[in-house]
């Protein structure tokens, strides 16, 4: 009986509606959390595991020494490496392919790398138009590394103190 009276009272004073409207009113003045992707981006952890890149030393020499530990550790068998002795006698890859369809972005390759050559960047919004595009070749990986050198260096530095 008492409950019924309360309900009638609420119905006539439109209190439920006002309560809902108050949320709207609050959000009207609050700071917005929606971002306008891709013009605006949300912050990402330095440990984020996006597309891969191969890094170089400051003198421009590629870091990768074809030890094939990433290939061995990769749980999805996404990495294929062929190696040879380069003319200067160093151990280098002739082929370094990552199949992005197989990759599960676990980051083990990065963990296994003894020379920090293969890294996973913060870049996640990549797309390709042909099927072949799903395989990142050595050239492409080095290109990604060169294009995003600053970003990679920054994130790795940020993360380094926790490693």
């Amino acid at each position: 009986m008492f409950d019924k009276l309360i309900k009638i009272f609420k119905d006539f004073t439109l209190s439920e509606l006002l309560l809902g409207m108050s949320v709207t009113a609050k959000e009207l003045v609050n700071t917005k959390i929606t971002v306008q992707f891709p013009e605006e981006r949300t912050p990402i952890s330095p440990r984020f595991r996006g597309i891969h890149a191969l890094r170089r030393y400051p003198n421009g020499e590629e870091r990768c020494i074809a030890c094939k530990l990433c290939e061995a550790v990769c749980p999805a068998n996404a990495i294929t490496i062929e190696s040879e002795m380069r003319d200067d006698g160093t151990r280098r890859t002739t082929q370094y392919d990552i199949d992005l369809f197989k990759c599960i972005y676990c980051g083990f390759c990065e963990e296994a790398c003894p020379v920090d050559a293969i890294v996973e960047t913060q870049i996640f919004d990549y797309a390709f138009e042909s099927r072949e595009g799903s395989v990142l070749t050595k050239e492409r990986l080095l290109e990604i590394g060169d294009e995003n050198k600053k970003l990679i260096d920054k994130t790795k530095l940020e993360d380094s103190k926790y490693r």
Binding site: I65, A66, C67, L69, P114
Partner: peptide
């Protein structure tokens, strides 16, 4: 230098 050693 195990990573570049063939015996690795």
């Amino acid at each position: 230098d195990c990573p570049i050693c063939d015996q690795g």
